[in-house]
Amino acid sequence: MIVHLWQNIDYVASVVLFCIGLYCVITKNNLIKKFIGLNIMETSVFAFIVALGVVDGGDAPIMGAGARAPFTNPIPQALILTGIVVAVSTTALALSLVIRIYQHCGTIEADELREME
């Protein structure tokens, strides 16, 4: 099992990054820091799905003069393109909410916000 994991270093890296992002989201108090952690989690999932489509020695799936098989799988790449753009939309909305919270309450620390209620 360990040897198999060592050969699949991409999958292991995405699990590690997911845990780092989750740690940041859970333990950090600052809202901006929490959203950076959320972005790390998102990127780790993207990295995992792109890694599923990789083929050894595969080229980019662009057919043209001089293109040689094998090609990497285009479907995960297309899904992830969509995912990245949706991720930046949610980040923009979340950060504008952070700005509003700061304007209203004067702080963006989660525990101080909880005390304010």
């Binding site: 950076i36 489509g53 990789v54 990245i84 753009v85 930046v88």
Partner: peptide, 25 residues
């Protein structure tokens, strides 16, 4: 890994726009 389309999007959106939005905030 042979995914230049995704790499380009990540460079433009992840490293560019997301950073700018965080900086503005």
């Amino acid at each position: 890994r042979g995914a230049p389309d995704v790499a380009m999007t990540e460079a433009a959106v992840g490293a560019g726009v997301t950073t700018v939005l965080f900086l503005v905030t």
